[in-house]
Amino acid sequence: PPAAAGLFRSLIGKKLVMAVTGLILFLFVVGHMLGNLKVFQGPEHFNAYAEGLRAVGAPFFGRGQLLWGVRITLLVSVFAHIWAAIEVTRGSWRARPVGYRRLEPVETTYAARTMRWGGVIIFLYVIYHLLDLTFGRANPSFVPGDVYHNVIASFSRWPVSAIYIVAMVVVGLHIYHGLWSAFQTLGLNRPPTFRWRRGAAAAIAAVIAGGYISIPVAVLAGLIR
């Protein structure tokens, strides 16, 4: 339909795509964190959870089918998200061919200014992360199926943990601006939300980053082995 086409041609429409896909990715990140925190309950629980991921949906779905559904959704989201991000970014670059000698930031945040690089970093991180814990290519002592072992093995090497921790901080920042920005983009922030939306976004982002980071830290500290 023409109207919808117009929507997606407009920059606002592209921001809409970014917000929606962003929120989907956000949901994954939250769920994924909750799942990962099960490592603290020990190998059985954690591996069972990883196994469970594949089993969910039975008997209606075959083994792994639902998981694949999720994976496809994620994949589509990530690429739609990136596509929109690139479109919007190019739009901004085109809009100011001659830059200022200096433009003083006043209202904007570090997080807002680093969204684009942050995104790139997250993207690279995820690739590395998949090679590390899903396919095992980047993980010398990778044991298919023993997810718990793989995680411990990876994080016991401090450079790996370092990479993760940095990545988690970036994710946190990205979500901090991303969340409240999505509020704006989706037009959800009626005046009442104005007061708490930034704080809320910050809190959520902190919890997520913190939750993730707790794992490599715990491994390095030898709390879980």
Binding site: I12, S92, V106, E107, T108, G187, N189, R190, P191
Partner: peptide, 28 residues
């Protein structure tokens, strides 16, 4: 013109201090 990525700099520079709440309203 470029897209809004919600930096809020416009509101800070606006001599009439027009709020970016109106941007959310525009999107809506």
């Amino acid at each position: 013109f470029g897209a809004c990525t919600n930096h809020g700099e416009c509101m800070a520079a606006c001599p009439k201090e027009i709020s970016i709440d109106f941007i959310a309203r525009l999107n809506r």
